[in-house]
Amino acid sequence: MISTLSIVDLKDICAFVHARTGMIFGETKRYYVERRISELMRVRGSVTPQDYLAVLRADETEVEKIINSFTVNETYFYREEHQLACLSRSILPDVVRKKSPGDRIRIWSMPCSTGEEPYSIAIWLLENWHLVDAYHVEIVGSDIDTAVLRQAGEANYGERALSKLPGHLIEGYFEPKHAHKHKLVADLKESVTFTKANILDPGSLAASGRFDVIFCRNLLIYFDDEGRRLAAQNLHALLNPGGYICLGHSESMARISACFDTVRFPDAIVYRRGEGGA
C-alpha cells in the first residue's frame, strides 16, 4: 500500500480523473485520493502509481473502477424535502398548463446515486400530487457510477437511507425488513428507469431525450468553471422549453449560465429554461 503520492503522481491521477469525469481533485483531497488509489493498485497488482496510470490508459474496465471509486454517493430518501414540495405545489402545476391529461411528464434525477432520489420523487408524487394518475409520469435516474446503478436497481436499503421517511411510508412502499434491509415494493421499483450517463459527455446523453424537470443536486460543486459551463449547456439542451432544474442548496445556476431564469417559488429557488428555442 502506498503511504503517500508524489506531487507528480497526484497531479497525473487527478488530471486523468478530471478528463474522464470533470471532477476536480487535488492537494486538498490528497487523503481521499490516496486511499482510493492504494486500494485500486492493491487489487490490480500495480507496483507504482505510474504503473497503474498505464493500466488506466489501456483498460476501460479499470477506468470504470476508478470512476466508481472516486464518485461521492451521499444520499437518503426525502433529502432536501422542500424541493419535493416545490415539485408538487409549483413546478408541475406550471408544467401541465401546456399539457393535456394522459400526456407524458419526464423527470430526470442526475446523478441518482443508489436510487434514493428518483424513488423519493415517485413516492412524493404518489402521496402529494393529486394529478399523478392523470398524466404518464416517467422518472429516469442516471449516474456515471455503474456500481451505484446496480444498487439502485436492487432497491434494497438500510436504516440510514430511510431515516427521514415517516413510518407509514416505509410500511406502504417497502417490504418487511430482512437482514437489516428494506426492499422497495416491485410496483414502485418498476416506475423508475436507470441509465449510465456522464453530464459532461453529450454522446452519453444522446439517447436520454428531453425532460420537463431535472434534479441535478450537489454535482456541479465537483467541477471547475469550464466543467460547470459545459454541464449547464448540456442540461439546457436536455430540458424542454419552459422546463425546470433543481440544484443543491449551495449551487446557483445564475453564477454559471445566463440561459436559465431564476424562479423563486414559496418552497424553493429553481431555474427555468425559456419558452423559446428549439
Score class of each variant (00 low, 15 high):
E116H: 11
E159Q: 15
K29L: 11
H249M: 06
L40M: 15
L184Q: 07
P101Q: 06
F260L: 08
V33F: 04
T28I: 10
A232K: 01
N198C: 06
N198F: 05
E62I: 13
G115S: 15
F215D: 02
R272I: 11
I256K: 03
A134Q: 12
P266E: 07
V55H: 14
S3W: 03
P166K: 13
A122E: 04
L56Y: 13
G172S: 14
F77Q: 10
N240V: 08
R57C: 15
E27D: 09
V17M: 07
H18R: 07
K99I: 11
R264K: 14
R228K: 15
R273T: 06
G276P: 05
T75E: 06
S46W: 10
H180W: 11
V148S: 09
L84A: 10
P93H: 05
R57I: 09
E116A: 15
S46T: 10
G115C: 07
G45R: 04
A15Q: 12
R210A: 01
G141E: 01
H249E: 00
G102P: 06
T146F: 09
D145H: 04
G102W: 07
Y271Q: 09
L230A: 10
N218W: 03
H178L: 13
Q50D: 15
R104W: 05
V270Y: 05
R210K: 02
S142H: 07
N128T: 12
C259K: 11
H236I: 03
E275T: 15
R228T: 03
E159F: 02
D225R: 10
A122L: 07
G277F: 08
R255D: 07
I144W: 01
M41W: 02
L205V: 05
D94M: 08
G274D: 14
I121G: 07
S250N: 00
Y119M: 09
F25S: 00
N128Q: 14
I7W: 07
A254P: 02
S120R: 13
V213S: 04
L220Y: 03
R229K: 12
S252A: 07
T48K: 13
H178P: 12
T48E: 14
E80L: 01
P176T: 10
I256C: 00
I199G: 00
N68D: 14
G45C: 14
E34F: 02
S252M: 04
Q233V: 14
W129K: 05
V8E: 15
A179K: 09
T4L: 07
K196S: 10
